[in-house]
Amino acid sequence: MVKSKLKVPALLLSIAFMSMLLAACGSGNHSNTAAGNDASPPPASTAPAASPAQTKMTDGLGHEVEVPADPQRIIASYLEDYLVSLGVKPVAQWSVANGTQEYLQDSLKDLPTIPYDLPLEAVTSFDPDLLIIGSNSAVEGGKYDQYAKIAPTFVLGDEVNNDWRKALLKIGEVLHKSDEAQKVLDDYEKKAADAKAKLEAAIPGKSVAAVWLVQGKFYVVSDKLSSGAVLYKDLGLKAPEVVKEISASGAGNWNAISLEKLADLDADYLILVNSDKDSGSAALNDALWKSVPAVKNGNVYEYPKSSSWLYYGPVASSQMVDNLLKDIVK
């Protein structure tokens, strides 16, 4: 409605401008713009083919979404973990200026990237037939309506998005793969239970903490979120007091910890996610770090930033379990 109302003035305005441009072209200095573009074929007119069957679903924000029966060109930015676990290949993958989700690249290699903030035209350029979006803030400010004009758009919503089990089942439902999703979940729970038993046998009653080093600063994982949920909930490892204390006062997945506090870290084992490897990880030469009990005893397991420890999802969690089985249980 708004569009049609504004089309006419916008049209008149633009024609006025266009004629000015054309007049300028006549004088000879702008001719290259037109010539350059003529060579390439105009974008294919891909009116979305009417899907034979669609299902109406209500997304996490209450939108009625017509989900195609068999979506072929999915964009589910930052939700690729779930798609990979379900054996679905999206048409583009999440990216930021300095990379992609490296732990998924076995499955997503060579897949084109899309910027994390999903610019409208970049999304359109992939001709998606289904968009799945995680958090509320990604569609804030009328963006939902604009995405929905490109393709049916399903928003999980923060509540589902923050719990990977719920998100997995929901995405399974959207993709008509509920059974597969349930199986992925069951397989993971079984794998985690096995690993839990093995860890109990290998390091009975020992505590473990995950520490992330990035740009010279240490962060410790929450005792309930992200990889903390895998360590303490799924694998039943003991959370050190310091971790509990910091998690109680911080709200993030990873909370900053000072070097002094780190020296108090009473964990028997440390998982170190090192994002500073390339820049020399100077912080690891600090005397205080070296005085952390687990470091002194040589019980540190270091993983690169390309590992899955900073993420969450079925594939990420499963890879964390693999890491521990390989390095601690052996």
């Binding site: 573009n37 035209e121 970049a122 350029s125």
Partner: peptide
Amino acid sequence: GVIRLSPIDV
């Protein structure tokens, strides 16, 4: 923009 529209298309 990301998607190419020639001046003619526009």
